[in-house]
Amino acid sequence: MVIYFTNQTGNTTDASVSSFTSIPVLDYTQALSPTTKPKFLAQLRDALINVGFLYLQNPPVSVATQDALTQKGFELFRQPLEKKLEIEMVNSPHFLGYSRLGAEITALKSDHREQFDFATELPAPGPDEPLYRNICGPNQWPDETAIPGFRQATEEYLSEVDALSASFTALIAESLDLPPTAMDGVFDEPQQHKLKLIKYPLPPSDQTSDGAGFQGVGAHKDSGFLTFLLQATPHRGLEVQNKAGEWVSAPPLPNTFVVNIGRALEALTGGVCTATTHRVSLRQEYFIDADGKPLGPRYSFPVFQGVSMDLSAENITLVVPDHIRDLVKDDKVKSDAEATFNKMFKTSIGEGTLVARVTSHQDVGQRWYPDILAKALQGQKDFVSKQ
């Protein structure tokens, strides 16, 4: 099943046009039947090439598991500040833990959100491993006596999303006429997934008047392989930019995850799978329901599927068939993907990821990686001065 939504101008269109005005909805159960799987794969290929975003309906993550994470997430945000600060991210060289409101930076501006970062539980790297391996490591867990069952709910959710990510990666490969195991070599074993629990409070009343709304998170493309997003409350705000530069709303839909392509997958496929710019806009009207009643804060829980930190150009063997590559008609997409590939995999993807984390979480960078932070900030200044 594919559902089309109306954009803010009231027009509807098929999602396969180059400047999409809707986000397609794919029913995961169709991928499980031999009779409906070919149709699912065709719809998936269209979403990968022309949109970069999709709703995945009926995902194989149980409603009970989703509800448990949501309720424990709400409890975590209700904790007093001093309890949150017990696991503040600045204490972790692995960029895991609590970030205060406005602490993360996107597109050189502070995001109006507070958040907790958790990930697949992994040991800290050894002293002889590359510095970028510090991206992986043990979590900072909240006090179990304050929120009983939080760790269990989080780890069960990550485990089910891990199974989904494996099956969905195989489906992506098949939709590109590759063997289902074609992308297995681009992941670490065990594979790390990063979960963000994000709270967007009501924005200030004096928000920007440029039509974009207050910045919940600035315009960006995700850097990893895939993102699986649970929109935990009914707020609008997630917006996806099409090739005409228009912003298309991606409101919450019942029993769906929003799935989007990251720059690593785009680079690995030579631009066949497209990473699409998106943002979270915090307009005042997004915080009230249809009856004019306040909705309270917006909550959003994405899981980011990364690729191996050691991945580099010389150990990538993925070759997308020519007849699939020819479906990408935009030469700019191909050239951008090539530039991204060269940048991300020039040495290893881990080095670039570490720099990105340091610049996004500058308090963590200042404490644990001051030399990398100073170099990265100077690079940003040099780039801006040339514009």
Results as ranks from 00 to 15, higher is better:
V2G: 02
N7R: 05
Q8G: 08
T13M: 06
S19W: 01
V25Y: 09
L26D: 06
Y28N: 03
Y28P: 03
Q30L: 00
S33H: 06
T36Q: 01
F40Q: 02
A42I: 10
Q43C: 05
L44C: 04
D46M: 08
D46T: 12
N50D: 10
V51W: 14
L54V: 06
V63S: 03
Q66T: 02
F74Q: 09
E75Y: 04
F77S: 05
Q79V: 05
K84G: 13
K84P: 09
L85R: 15
E88F: 04
V90Q: 08
S92D: 01
P93F: 08
G97Y: 02
Y98V: 12
I105F: 09
D111C: 01
H112N: 06
E114C: 01
E121Y: 02
E121Q: 09
L122A: 06
L122W: 04
A124Q: 04
P125K: 13
P127S: 13
Y132H: 08
C136W: 07
G137Y: 00
P142Q: 00
D143H: 06
I147M: 04
F150R: 06
R151F: 00
A163C: 06
S165M: 01
S165K: 02
L171Y: 02
I172W: 01
A182K: 14
D184I: 01
V186S: 08
E189N: 15
Q192M: 15
Q192E: 13
Q192A: 15
H193M: 03
L195F: 00
L202Y: 15
S205V: 13
A212T: 07
Q215V: 15
G218P: 11
A219F: 03
D222V: 15
S223N: 15
G224E: 10
P234T: 11
H235P: 08
R236P: 03
E246T: 07
W247H: 12
V248I: 15
L253V: 14
L253W: 11
V259L: 09
E266M: 13
G271R: 10
T277E: 10
T277F: 07
T277Q: 11
R279Q: 12
R279W: 04
E285Y: 09
Y286Q: 09
Y286S: 12
F287P: 09
A290Q: 10
D291L: 14
D291Y: 14
P294C: 06
G296Y: 13
P297D: 07
Y299C: 12
V303S: 14
F304S: 05
G306Y: 10
S308K: 10
S308T: 10
L311W: 01
S312P: 03
A313T: 10
A313Q: 14
P321N: 00
I324V: 15
K332D: 12
V333P: 09
V333Q: 15
S335V: 06
D336N: 12
M344R: 09
K346D: 15
T347C: 14
S348P: 00
E351W: 03
V364L: 08
Y369Q: 15
A376L: 08
Q380V: 05
V384A: 05
V384W: 12
K386W: 02
K386Q: 11
K386S: 11
